Simulated assay, not measured.
Amino acid sequence: MINFRYHVVSLAAVFLALAIGLVVGTAAANGPLADTLNDQVNKITDEKEQLRDDLDQSRSELKKNSDFATEVAPMLLNSKLPGHNVLLVKIEGSDKDVDTAATGIATMLQTAGAKVTGTVTIKERFTAAASEDTLLDLAESSAPPGISGALPNNGKGQETSAALLAAVLVADKPGAPQVDGTRAVLSAYESGGYIDLAGDLKTPADAVIVIAGAPASGKDAKERNAVALTTVSRFALALSNDMVVAGLSANGLVSSVRADASIAKSVSTVDNAVTANGQVAAVLALVERIGGKTGHYGIGSGATSLLPKSASAASGS
């Protein structure tokens, strides 16, 4: 009869055999396996160093390209927009590069001889679906008498408010006087948390550059992005289309403009506005747009070239 002691001895023998087999197998394969692993580690290390070198080189080249664009900007832009008043409109996004793009474009506009009348930031609260009714009430209560009759009568708060802001901030001809009640309108929207203001904004702009951040995200992203496009449309309508939309990429608002045939034929776009190249392109695109031509520039989908080909010949007047 097999007793418990026999089972214990048998199990011990089995485990001992397994242990001896592992030791012998490891010892036999240790040399080739270790060499193979070392070769793979060395290869990965070399590839990592090469990638780091490539990244450093790419960053260096981008910096040189940016420096080059900054240096040639005066030659490309000098006296291209004398006497023009340009408003910057930022569509607030999650990417802080919007501020970098706006600052760079403002500098390029000044190089071109234009005056930046100020900056209006359309905040996320403005584009939220929950703000629709409140914005409609605000537009109806703050619109000056001379403008209220010209606002859209469709019950859409964001569109009505965009039309009102455009009416008090821009004019289709240089030198037009400021609309009575402009400051009260801007203060009402600013105090409500719908916009931020910078600059004196005392002179109506005869051209606009919209700087678009990253596209909206979340459950109401589609509605928010639609409001951004509607805002562009309303400003373009008030300006007779002397407008450029400059985005950080071809996604979001730039893509929406390019995909809308009715807007794309009258509003120019630039999709790399965070770079000096894109900032130069945005101003050149505005020069071209004032001259009556429309184009789409940058490096993303829908762009036809980096820069307007006819901008250097445009009069800018």
Rank of each mutant, 00 (worst) to 15 (best):
I122Q: 06
A129M: 08
T182S: 12
T70Q: 15
V89P: 04
A205R: 00
P74T: 09
L138C: 12
L151H: 07
T111S: 05
L62V: 11
K80E: 09
A69K: 00
T160H: 02
E124A: 14
S191N: 15
G155S: 12
K202D: 15
P204D: 05
L81E: 07
L136S: 12
D137S: 14
A106K: 05
A171P: 11
A207Y: 00
A171C: 11
A205I: 00
S94N: 14
K123I: 09
A176F: 06
V168H: 10
R125K: 15
A102L: 01
G155E: 14
A106N: 08
S66P: 06
G175L: 08
A207L: 03
N78G: 10
A114I: 09
T70A: 15
K202W: 02
A73H: 04
S94F: 07
G118M: 00
M75F: 12
P152G: 14
E159H: 07
I195T: 12
A163T: 04
A128W: 04
Y189F: 14
Y194E: 04
T127H: 02
P177E: 11
L135A: 11
E132N: 15
G93D: 09
G93F: 06
G157Y: 14
K173L: 12
A130I: 10
D172T: 09
G192M: 04
S187P: 06
G104P: 06
T127Q: 08
T182E: 03
F126R: 05
A129H: 02
D180I: 05
